[in-house]
Write a protein that binds this DNA or RNA. Structure first.
Lengths: 145, 145
DNA sequence: TATTGTTATACTCTATAACTATA
DNA sequence: TATAGTTATAGAGTATAACAATA
């Protein structure tokens, strides 16, 4: 049986997509935490940058439904990384606030995730690192714009 | 209350990690399929490049356990994208083979995923696209090495 | 009456353990 | 007996629907 195999060069879009997806998967794998779930880590990262948010706002940002965020926040509270506070102006609202342990946890998680990549980057030439720095800036604009 | 806010420039590793993770998330979201699950699409992509594999081999490549792959393949078979064949030399083995519809489905899925990024790339300068091309090659080496 | 969050319940995707069929 | 795959069952993580509390 004759099988025709396509040998065309992948487009830039295709190459970049595959390379980015693979690197992202590797980075996720390297930084994985044992005790906190991915959804908990993502919510914690959001709270780290926003001081405090209501449960509903957090659910909207994380693109999950309120019942799901109730469970995620319950998990974070159980680990002592955030606290829930009733709003003083509207008793229906729950403000979710990251605490010092939560901040420390997030920072250590970030460092753990950075470590693998930082090590890999030392194997590159200065020129290659500069290329990656410029690429990161272009990526920022791609996603925002 | 006084809050000290860190304003240090992120390291290259940190910037790159965040940018890559965010772009990867966007690409996943853009290319999402309505009827096939992510695991099914991943398995189909593997089968597209390998002609045929046993169920166990496929499970190992996709990093899932055999019972999970049984379900994933059942879903693909139900959609008419692959077929299961008993090996002629060892009746215990199940060869999973992608068919023409499966090939077409995978190609269309790839194109859908590439489309958003390809469109974004046209907004860049030639120089910026060259930078991204070099970055993709560096990424390939980072993950392999 | 409308809105925020919680509880009850169900679905999807995964795993481990027990089972069937083939070597 | 050992191995490949399937079936049974259970555990995350998510959603929708029904509910309680507050506005």
């Amino acid at each position: 049986m004759l099988r025709i195999v396509k040998t065309t060069t992948p487009t830039l879009a295709s190459h970049l997509r595959v390379a980015v997806a693979r690197l992202a998967r590797q980075l996720r794998h390297q930084g994985a935490s044992e005790d906190a779930t991915p959804s908990q880590l993502a919510a914690l990262a959001t709270l780290y940058h926003r001081v405090h948010l209501t449960l509903g706002e957090l659910a909207a940002i994380e693109r999950v439904k309120p019942p799901t965020m109730t469970r995620i926040v319950a998990g974070l509270e159980e680990k002592g990384l955030v606290r829930r506070e009733h709003s003083s102006t509207d008793g229906r609202l729950i403000n979710v606030v990251i605490n010092d342990d939560g901040r420390t946890y997030h920072e250590q998680y970030q460092q753990r995730r950075d470590a693998w990549l930082a090590r890999k980057l030392t194997d590159l030439t200065k020129d290659e690192r500069e290329t990656l720095g410029r690429a990161a800036e272009i990526f920022d604009r791609l996603v925002e714009g």
